[in-house]
Design a protein around this nucleic acid. Structure first.
Length: 273
DNA sequence: CACTCTACCTGTGCGC
DNA sequence: TGCGCACAGGTAGAGT
């Protein structure tokens, strides 16, 4: 399940990898499963020939690419937005490589390349906006770069359980179920603890911890979870580890449900406040 | 405002 | 072996 570190890894691969998507022009768009784009945008996607990938952005789990038209009139720029959701993958292949079973969307590029969007569960989405703000306005600040004053301001007006709070993309953007559990474990905070019960020091520690966990995961190119998800090499401590012994205190890691979500925690390390 | 529930999907892995 | 079913999860939208 791609969360912020995995999405950033995808972005860097497309931007800095070989081959790179940067500067590539669209020759044609092949919508293999129409449900991947909004119904009202299907026709627009068919008219993207000549547009060039120029700038790359990420905010939370949203990938965004500036498309510049063939006549270089920047007033006609479009932003391609991609959300991988659960099982989406975005990557470049040689244009002659066969489309796979779960390929939903394929963009033929110049230089014999093709941008593919594969997604077994059909949760991922691709769409166009005029301005990045149309995506970011409904989101909180990016979790990797949120400042302490901004984080403090936001958590100070909240009275919510920490787990659903971290998952709320309007609070801060980019944390999913895996990293929410990992961050709370590392910060030694119980998922059911209510944010307004934290001291300033504890809030500060939560902010520091969430940034360091995400940075570490990014350095490892994402998480590696036995048999489930193996994007990079970041090793999780609690997610999916229920029944195992905590590597800090030795207590048995528990799994419960918080707000309909599977939640893993160590009852020894994480005491509810 | 905070929360809960449901729908959207399908591959996986369990119990019988 | 095979069948059926629960489960996984991000987000939108509706309801409490």
């Amino acid at each position: 399940m791609p969360e912020l570190p995995e999405v950033e890894t995808v972005l860097r691969a497309l931007k800095d990898g070989l081959p790179s998507l940067e500067g590539r022009r669209i020759k044609s768009v092949n919508m293999i499963w129409g449900g991947v784009v909004p119904v009202e945008q299907v026709d627009i996607f068919k008219k993207l020939q000549g547009f060039k990938f120029t700038q790359f952005f990420r905010h939370g789990k949203y990938l965004m690419f500036t498309l510049e038209p063939a006549d270089a009139d920047y007033t006609k720029n479009k932003i391609l937005v991609v959300h991988l959701r659960m099982t989406g993958r975005l990557f470049i292949v040689p244009d002659n490589q066969a489309v796979e079973r779960h390929t939903r969307f394929s963009v033929r590029l110049d230089e014999g390349l093709s941008l593919r969007f594969d997604d077994p569960r059909k949760f991922g989405r691709v769409w166009l906006v005029e301005n990045i703000c149309q995506v970011t306005d409904k989101l909180g600040p990016d979790a990797l770069t949120v400042s302490w004053p901004d984080f403090q301001k936001r958590i100070d007006i909240s009275r919510r359980q920490l787990k659903p709070l971290l998952l709320d993309q309007a609070f801060i953007s980019g944390i999913g179920n895996i990293y929410a559990d990992e961050i709370l474990f590392r910060a030694k905070l119980h998922p059911l603890t209510v944010s307004s019960n934290l001291s300033v020091k504890q809030k500060h520690h939560l902010h520091e911890t969430l940034i360091s966990v995400l940075q570490e995961a990014l350095l490892a190119n994402g998480a590696n979870i036995d048999g489930v998800f193996k994007a990079g090499s970041f090793v999780v401590a609690v997610y999916g580890k229920d029944g195992d012994n905590c590597h800090i205190c030795g207590e048995t890691i528990m799994k419960t449900r918080v707000g309909q979500r599977g939640t893993h925690y160590c009852p020894g390390c994480q005491i509810a406040i």
